[in-house]
């Protein structure tokens, strides 16, 4: 995979991650005001699991492949599998080993962060306009 493609994927991910962090912090602040410290930590745990999973997926997607469409697609699917597995494992750890977990806040942080990952699309579109 060439350097330009790697840079594009990294830039798209970093833009998406920025929005994910902003939204997670916002949900965490709302949870802190509404239900206390445990709820805020739960929201951060939910958002962080999506961000860490996305990072793991990006590292997998950046690995060199054959350059043919089929190889690229296979590499992307592998990256997605890694992403989903990492997110599921982190959620499992949070549910299993955090006694003061506030489930609704965790789901809120998770949902906000997962839906905000589409923000990186805007970066890719802007780069195409240039």
């Amino acid at each position: 995979m060439d350097k330009v493609t790697n840079t594009k994927i990294s830039r798209a991910f970093s833009k998406a991650a920025r929005w994910q962090i902003i939204i997670t912090v916002l949900i965490s602040c709302v949870s802190l005001l509404a239900a206390g410290m445990n709820a805020a930590i739960s929201a951060i745990a939910g958002g962080a699991s999506v961000i860490v999973g996305g990072f793991a997926g990006m590292m997998m997607a950046r690995r060199p492949n054959g350059g043919t469409p089929g190889a690229i697609l296979f590499s992307m699917l592998k990256a997605e599998v890694i992403r989903v597995l990492v997110i599921a494992m982190l959620l499992l750890v949070a549910f299993r080993y955090y006694p003061g977990l506030f489930p609704l806040s965790l789901i809120g942080g998770l949902a906000g962060s997962a839906l905000a990952s589409g923000a990186g699309l805007r970066t890719v579109n802007n780069e195409n306009d240039d």
Partner: peptide, 8 residues
């Protein structure tokens, strides 16, 4: 890049 983001 778009495929990666859209998969998410």
């Amino acid at each position: 890049g778009k495929v990666f983001l859209l998969m998410g």
